Amino acid sequence: MIIRPYAPGDDAALYDICLRTGDNGGDASHLFTDPRLLGEIFVGPYLRFEPSLAFVVDDGAAAGYVLGARHTPSFEEACEQEWWPPLRRRYPRDSFPAGTRDAHYVEIIHERRNADPAIIDEYPAHLHIDMLPRAQGHGMGRALMERLLAALRDAGAPGVHLGVGAANVRAIGFYERMGFATLRASENGRVMARATT
C-alpha cells in the first residue's frame, strides 16, 4: 500500500470512493440514483483546479485519497466561473424528486458558496479525505494527511480547515489526533482546523 500523486486516469475510481464513503464514512451507493453526483461536488473540482494537492492510497487500485485547495476563496471563484455552470445545466433543480438525496445535492450545486472570512483569515486552505475500509487501520490516513499538510505548507498556506458530519465520530477522533481543533459545532457537524506546520 503506497501513497502517490493523483494521475488523470484516477478520476472514476476517486468518484467511486467518494460515493462509497459518502454516508458519514459508510457506503452511500444505495442512497443515490446518480452515482456520480457526490463526486462532481467533492472530487471533480479539486482534480481540475488543484491536481498537485491530490494524493491517492494505492494497493493495486485506488483505495483512498486526500484532496486540498490552497486558497479557498480563489478555489470557490474558479468553481463558480468554470465548474458549477455546466453542472447546473446538467442538473436542473427539478432533476430528482423532492426530498431525495440526489435533490439535496443538486441544490448544493445551485447554491453560491463562500467560506467564512473569520475562518479563512487564519486557515485559508481546506481539504477532503476519504478511505475505503480496506485502507483503514494501516496508518495511511495519517500518511495522507501529512503528505497534504507538507504540500500546503510548501504552497504557502499557513492553515487548513475541513467540515465533518456530527455522526462521523470516527473521523472526528482521527482529525483530533491529527491536531485539528473544533472551531464551530452544530447538531449537523463541525468545522475543524489546524496550522500546516
Rank of each mutant, 00 (worst) to 15 (best):
H110G: 07
Q136D: 10
D23V: 11
D154E: 14
G64V: 00
L127C: 07
D116E: 13
P5G: 02
R177W: 13
R88M: 11
L132W: 01
D102C: 08
A125Y: 04
L132N: 01
L183N: 02
L47V: 02
R4P: 00
H104D: 13
L183P: 02
Q136L: 08
G137M: 05
A195M: 12
D34F: 07
M140C: 09
A135G: 04
E176P: 05
Y123V: 01
P73N: 15
D27M: 05
L87Y: 06
F96K: 01
H104A: 15
I108E: 11
E146H: 12
G163N: 06
R90W: 09
D23R: 13
R89N: 10
N114C: 14
R147W: 11
L152H: 03
R4V: 00
G141F: 07
V56I: 05
D116R: 03
H104M: 15
R101V: 09
A166H: 10
R194G: 08
G156R: 07
V191T: 11
L183T: 03
A54S: 08
D102G: 05
Y46F: 13
S74T: 15
R113C: 15
A195H: 11
E77R: 13
D130H: 01
G68E: 05
M1W: 06
P8W: 05
E77H: 12
D121L: 10
P92F: 10
V164Y: 02
P133D: 11
A98R: 07
D27H: 06
L148I: 12
I120P: 01
A155G: 12
S186V: 14
M145D: 04
G26L: 15
H161P: 01
V191L: 07
E80V: 14
A125Q: 04
A195W: 07
T182G: 09
D116A: 12
Y105V: 12
E176R: 15
P51L: 07
V66T: 06
P85R: 04
L148H: 05
L31I: 13
N168M: 14
T197H: 14
S186Q: 11
L38P: 06
R170A: 15
C79T: 03
A12H: 05
G99R: 09
D27V: 10
R36N: 14
N168F: 13
F96E: 01
I120M: 03
R20S: 04
D121N: 09
E107I: 13
A181S: 11
A63D: 00
D102S: 05
G163R: 08
Q136A: 05
D11Y: 02
E80H: 11
A54L: 09
L53H: 09
V56E: 00
I108Q: 12
W83V: 03
V106Y: 07
A28E: 07
Y46Q: 02
R184D: 06
F174L: 12
E80W: 10
F180S: 02
Q81A: 15
Y105E: 09
Q136H: 03
E50M: 12
G139V: 09
P8F: 10
P51F: 08
L19Q: 01
G139T: 05
A166L: 09
P85H: 10
Q136C: 11
I2N: 04
R48G: 06
T196K: 04
A13W: 00
W83H: 09
A61E: 00
C18A: 08
S74L: 15
L152S: 03
L38G: 04
V43Y: 01
A135E: 01
I2C: 06
N188W: 14
A157F: 08
A13P: 01
H161W: 04
S186P: 05
Y105L: 10
S52Y: 14
